[in-house]
Simulated scan of single mutants.
Amino acid sequence: MKTNPIVGQGTSLQQWQSSQHLADMESINILSLVPPGARAVIVAPHPDDEVLGCGGLLQVLAAAGRSLQLISVTDGSASHPGSTRWPVERLTVIRPQESAEALRRLGLPMHRLKWLRGGFSDTQVAARESELSGFIERHLHPTDVLFTTWSEDGHRDHEAVGRASAEAARRVGATCHELPVWTWHWATPEDALVPWQRARKILLSPAQIARKRHAVHAFASQLEGDPEAGLAPVLAPYVLDRLLQPFEVVFL
């Protein structure tokens, strides 16, 4: 992946809405990817990636009664470097709380959701990628279907988590699918670097989009920057616009 592709405001929503690749992309029923009796395992690099990447997917699976396991690899405490408003100590506590509230807003059965926190250091996942792969592997079954961030997503943690998840799934014999998150920022609508041939759309209803939007707004820390530290919000309005389209994309 190119060096630090997550800069500026990125590709606009209007550009994506004119994409021929998106227009031609085949849609898929998520329940066909996670058949009855299988468990969906969501491996998220940071608290919020599970909602941003697959908040609609999670709603569909939960409504169908599929078993769910969420693995939060880091606590996301490095999202505001140098900030006194959002110091590491505060973020370590608040970000998992935000994630729990977001999952509740999605309508997930919190009493049945299995949720593991990996405790890996935010922004430093690649340094412990082999250890992470082993951690994920210990919590997998051969019939599991993993959903994780794309291994070329443009964020170091996202890419390391994608690689580690794929390797863990391979060793166990489970299935692994990838989700673009920051790809929507740096890629262009017809970008040859994106594996369009593997991409499928999961269509979302207006109600599912609204619930996903409500869930995203539980991440108060990510919706606020720190002007004194020169930090803009991580989830600026133009970022959310790209992530709250009437579909989600999965790479099979």
Rank of each mutant, 00 (worst) to 15 (best):
Leu223Glu: 05
Met1Gln: 14
Arg90Gln: 03
Asp153Phe: 08
Gly173Pro: 04
Leu193Met: 01
Leu235Asp: 01
Lys2Trp: 04
Leu61Tyr: 06
Gly55Met: 15
Lys2Val: 00
Asp24Tyr: 00
Ala166Gln: 14
Val88Gly: 08
Arg198Cys: 07
Phe135Cys: 03
Thr188Arg: 10
Cys176Tyr: 05
Ala78Pro: 01
Leu231Glu: 03
Pro87Lys: 05
His141Phe: 05
Ala62Gln: 07
Ala210His: 05
Gln245Ser: 13
Leu68Val: 09
Arg163Asn: 11
Gly55Glu: 14
Pro142Asn: 02
Arg105Cys: 02
Asp226Trp: 09
Leu240Glu: 13
Leu57Phe: 12
Ser18Trp: 03
Ala127Gly: 15
Pro246Ser: 02
His139Thr: 03
Gln15Pro: 00
Arg163Met: 14
Gln20Arg: 06
His177Glu: 03
Gln208Ser: 11
Leu13Trp: 07
Glu26Phe: 00
Phe120Ala: 06
Val172Tyr: 03
Arg163Thr: 10
Ser67Phe: 10
Ala78Phe: 00
Ala232Asp: 09
Arg156Lys: 09
Trp196His: 15
Tyr238Phe: 06
Ala229Pro: 03
Ser221Leu: 12
Pro195Phe: 13
Leu33Pro: 00
Gly10Ser: 09
Gln97Leu: 15
Trp115Pro: 10
Ala23Asn: 04
Ala166Arg: 13
Glu98Val: 08
Phe120Asp: 03
Gln9Tyr: 08
Leu193His: 02
Phe247Arg: 08
Leu116Lys: 07
Ala164Pro: 09
Arg90Val: 07
Glu129Lys: 08
Ile94Glu: 10
Gly10Glu: 13
Trp86Thr: 12
Leu179Ala: 09
Ala192Leu: 03
Trp182Lys: 04
Ala100Ser: 04
Ala236Val: 15
Val41Ile: 00
Ile209Gly: 12
Lys201Gly: 10
Leu193Lys: 02
Arg200Pro: 10
Glu101Cys: 12
Val181Leu: 01
Trp196Cys: 10
Leu103Thr: 10
Cys54Ser: 11
Ser121Asn: 14
Arg95Ser: 06
Gln20His: 08
Lys114Trp: 15
Gly134Thr: 00
Ser121Asp: 13
Glu248Phe: 07
Ile6Gly: 02
Leu146Asp: 12
His177Trp: 15
Thr84Asn: 05
Ala199Val: 06
Ile71Asp: 13
Gly162Ser: 09
Ser79Val: 15
Leu252Glu: 05
Val194Ala: 11
Asp157Trp: 15
Met25Gly: 07
Leu68Ile: 12
Thr74Gly: 04
Arg117Leu: 07
Lys114Cys: 10
Thr123Cys: 01
Val145Ile: 11
Leu31His: 08
Pro45Ala: 13
Val249Lys: 06
Ser27Glu: 13
Asp157Lys: 12
Val172Gly: 05
Pro195Gly: 14
Ala169Pro: 13
Cys176Phe: 11
Gly65Leu: 00
Ala218Trp: 14
Ile6Arg: 14
Ser151Tyr: 14
Leu70Lys: 14
Gly230Arg: 06
Gln124Met: 10
Asp153His: 13
Arg95Cys: 06
Met1Thr: 15
Thr188Ile: 04
Ala169Arg: 14
Glu228Ser: 09
His21Ala: 11
Gly154His: 05
Ala62Phe: 15
Ile71Phe: 07
Ser83Gln: 04
Ser27Ala: 08
Gly65Tyr: 01
Ile6Pro: 00
His80Phe: 09
Leu70His: 05
Arg242Phe: 02
Pro35Phe: 01
